[in-house]
Amino acid sequence: MTTRETILNRLRSELRRPDLPFPLGNTPPLTSDERMTVTAASGTLWELAERFGAELTALHGTYEIVGTPTEARLALINRLLTWREEERAAYRGPKPQTGQEDQVLGWADEALPVPGIADALADLGIEVIAPAALYSSEERDAVRFIRYGVTGVQAAFAGTGSMLMVAGPKTSRAASLLPLRHIALIPFSRLYPAIEDWLAAERNAGTLTSVLRANANVTLITGPSKSADIEMNLTLGVHGPKFVHAILFEDDVER
């Protein structure tokens, strides 16, 4: 018998024992009706956006809410330029050249919820790299020192200030993971009060399981990378981004 069979058979026979003290025989599954929304939120989309921002701020992230995709593009450019200024000002002494100072690691332009980002940034001399492959060490070295990441989101949750990322051909995991600073563009059409609301919507649409299964990886991100391992002291940017900036904007996409 294989280990697999041994384990499964023994499990089955133990669970059939009438004198087994635990688990009890009548253990129904948890149903959707009773399952609670753990961190709830409510309100208009603008209120939800504010709540998202407040939650993210509490986690040492930053945010802004703007009216249109065009304003969102502007906000993104401003944020990048401000960050670059800040970093330059903070740096003392000769700066090591990586050749990646003026690059952004991003999702493919067509995967971003705001059109024309790559072009707008190119006008400012900033190049958006959306790698097709990061498998070899050469391919990785080509993006290793990029300090800024730009992505959209699959969904965002106001109650917890969380963003859901789905890995795909045009939506690299690296863009929200490797750079020190991450900007996420969040259209209102992807903003949900709570995780549970998104789960319910996907479940009702019959797409919930396929979102997970078809895409190899789905990641929920809530704030900048952090650790409290050193004597409970909070430190940010351990492996993932140290700065997370969300740009929430009103769009006219139907949900």
Partner: peptide, 26 residues
């Protein structure tokens, strides 16, 4: 909530399979 008092941890990584052929990473 029980481990660290957070509403959500910073990351929840959910992996269902190896990267698909056209994915840039994984």
């Amino acid at each position: 909530r029980s481990a660290t008092g957070q509403q959500c941890s910073v990351y929840l990584s959910m992996t269902s399979g190896p990267r698909r052929a056209d994915h840039p990473d994984g």
